[in-house]
Each structure stands twice: as structure tokens, then as C-alpha cells.
Simulated scan of single mutants.
Amino acid sequence: MISDKLLALRKRKGMSQQEVADAIGVTRQTVSNWELGQGSPALDKAAELARLYDVTLNDLASDEVDVVCPGKGGRTRDVHVLDGLVGKDVTVELADGEGALVHARLLSVGAGWIRLECDAPRAVFPTPIFREKEPPRRVLKLVDMADVAGFTVEEDAR
């Protein structure tokens, strides 16, 4: 949901609701309402928010893109060396013991974020409802580079 993304992105940026409101020309209450899911920003304000948070408008608006920034972020890293991994399958270790994203295809790198396509978690039920041959559903994730501990390139082709 866009409300969850707005809250996570604001916290990642280390800004208060008032600072965001001042930056895009709305009231603090408007920002609060957006983060609580009590309305959504108009297209012009959503575009300003996307620029403020260094994401694309599609990243902000699409329910198909998850924002992953479990930690408090931190220093911005020089990620140009990762350009050579674009298009490869990787495992991304998350900082602060938050786990890993395995079998993830690195789609792009930039602006402090990496864009990944990875398997969606499956529901766990007492009896399996998925056939073994059924391919997993793939989702897009936008991961804050400050929350990445490391990468492992997966050699096996999918």
C-alpha cells in the first residue's frame, strides 16, 4: 500500500512529517493522513514525493513494488561496482540479521536503491495446496542499499 511506502520512505530519509509537508507544500496533517491510509496524494504531489525520496513514481504508486528498508538506513554507499551484476541472480543478505532475499534477479542499481525481482513468500497451511511444478509468483522489491550487508552471485541458471 502507498501509505506503508510513504511512512517507510520518510523514516528512511530521516525526515519528520512537518519537514516532508514543508518540502512539498502541504500540511503536516495531510502527510499524516496519507501515511495512515486516509487518502492518497494527487499525482503532482506523488511526483514530488517520489523525487524527494529518490524513487520513481511507479515505485511509489505500484502495489507490485515492495519497499524493503528494515533498518534505519545509514550512509549512502558507492554502488557503481554492482552495475556488472544487473541481470544476474543473486542472494542479498540484509543488515541487522533481517535475513536474506534468495534467488533474486538484480534488475537495476541507483540512487541508493537496488531493484530486485524475487519469489513471493508462499502461504503456509497444514496441507500443501501448491503443486510442486507450479512456478513461484515473482514480485518486485526496492531495497535500500544502506540495509544490504552483502551479495552472493548464484551460478546456477533458473
Rank of each mutant, 00 (worst) to 15 (best):
Q29A: 14
D59L: 02
Q29L: 08
Q17D: 03
G71Q: 05
A47F: 00
M15V: 07
L57C: 00
A21F: 05
E19P: 03
N58W: 01
M15S: 07
E48P: 01
V55R: 00
D44S: 15
L36W: 03
G71H: 05
S40V: 12
R51F: 01
A21C: 03
K72I: 09
D63T: 12
G25W: 06
V68W: 14
G74L: 11
E64S: 13
D59I: 02
V31T: 05
W34S: 06
A47S: 12
Q38H: 12
I24W: 08
Q17P: 01
A61M: 10
D22H: 09
T76Y: 06
M15I: 05
L52K: 09
R77C: 04
N58K: 03
N33A: 13
D59V: 02
V20F: 01
V67E: 00
L57R: 01
T27G: 13
T27W: 05
G25P: 06
A42H: 09
T56M: 10
V79T: 15
E48K: 15
D54A: 14
V20I: 13
V79M: 15
L52W: 07
D66H: 09
A23C: 09
D66F: 10
G39I: 13
L57I: 14
R28P: 08
D54P: 02
L57E: 08
E64Q: 14
L43R: 09
D78E: 10
K45R: 15
K13M: 13
R28D: 08
A50N: 10
P41K: 09
R12T: 00
A61S: 08
A50P: 11
E35V: 10
Q17H: 02
E35W: 08
A50D: 08
D22E: 14
R28M: 14
Q17V: 03
L36M: 12
K72P: 10
L36N: 15
V55I: 15
V20C: 05
D54K: 02
D78P: 03
V20R: 00
A61C: 09
R28F: 06
R51Y: 02
Q18A: 13
T76H: 08
Q38Y: 10
E48D: 14
A42V: 07
S40A: 14
G73Q: 04
G71N: 10
A46H: 09
T76M: 07
G71K: 05
T27Q: 07
L36K: 15
V20D: 02
S16F: 03
D78L: 03
E64K: 14
P41E: 09
T30G: 04
P70H: 08
D78S: 07
T27D: 13
C69I: 07
G25E: 06
L49K: 04
R77Q: 15
G14F: 01
R51N: 14
N33E: 10
E19C: 02
A46M: 11
D54L: 12
Y53L: 04
G74C: 12
T76N: 07
L60W: 09
D44N: 14
A21W: 06
R28N: 11
